Computed example of a mutant assay.
Amino acid sequence: MTNPFENKDSTYLVLINDEGQYSLWPASIAIPHGWNIAFAENTRAACLNYINSHWTDMRPNSLKKMERKDMS
């Protein structure tokens, strides 16, 4: 059995959680609670390109909010 997270021939989704963190997710596996689809089912390469172009700040949203409060 191959790892569904590494199968280059499968289709994937890009998920995002409330913290603004992204995940490459096999389309054949149920989406876990707390995650939403950010980019619809597509190739692994297309999903990775989406993540790389949209997740430019790795800090979780809660940390960004704390930093903004500290600057006020």
Rank of each mutant, 00 (worst) to 15 (best):
K65W: 05
C47K: 01
R59D: 07
D70Y: 13
P26T: 01
C47I: 03
Q21G: 05
S10A: 15
A27T: 04
A38Q: 08
D18P: 01
E67K: 00
S72H: 08
M1H: 12
E67G: 00
P4A: 12
G20Y: 00
R59I: 04
A38I: 01
E19M: 09
P60F: 08
I29P: 09
T2A: 13
S28W: 02
K64Y: 08
M1P: 06
T11N: 15
N52Q: 06
N17R: 04
I29R: 14
L48T: 09
V14R: 01
D70F: 08
G20D: 00
L63R: 13
D70N: 13
D57V: 00
S28R: 05
I31D: 01
A27W: 08
M58H: 12
D9A: 15
N17Q: 04
K65M: 14
S72Q: 11
L13C: 05
L48I: 12
K8Q: 13
P60N: 10
F39G: 08
I31C: 01
N61T: 13
T43H: 09
S28F: 10
I51N: 03
D18G: 10
T2N: 14
A45G: 03
T11F: 11
Q21W: 13
N36D: 07
I29V: 12
Y12Q: 01
S28T: 10
K8G: 04
Y12H: 02
N42T: 10
E19W: 06
Y12M: 05
A27F: 10
S10D: 04
K65Q: 15
A38W: 11
N42S: 15
A27N: 13
Q21S: 04
L24G: 08
L13D: 12
H33W: 07
W55N: 04
M1I: 06
N17C: 00
L63K: 12
T11P: 09
S28H: 10
A40E: 14
S62M: 00
F5R: 00
N7P: 01
I51A: 07
E67L: 13
I37K: 06
D9M: 12
I51K: 00
L48R: 10
C47L: 03
E67Y: 03
Y22P: 06
K69R: 15
M66L: 15
N42P: 04
M58I: 02
N36A: 03
C47Q: 01
F39D: 06
N49Y: 05
N42D: 15
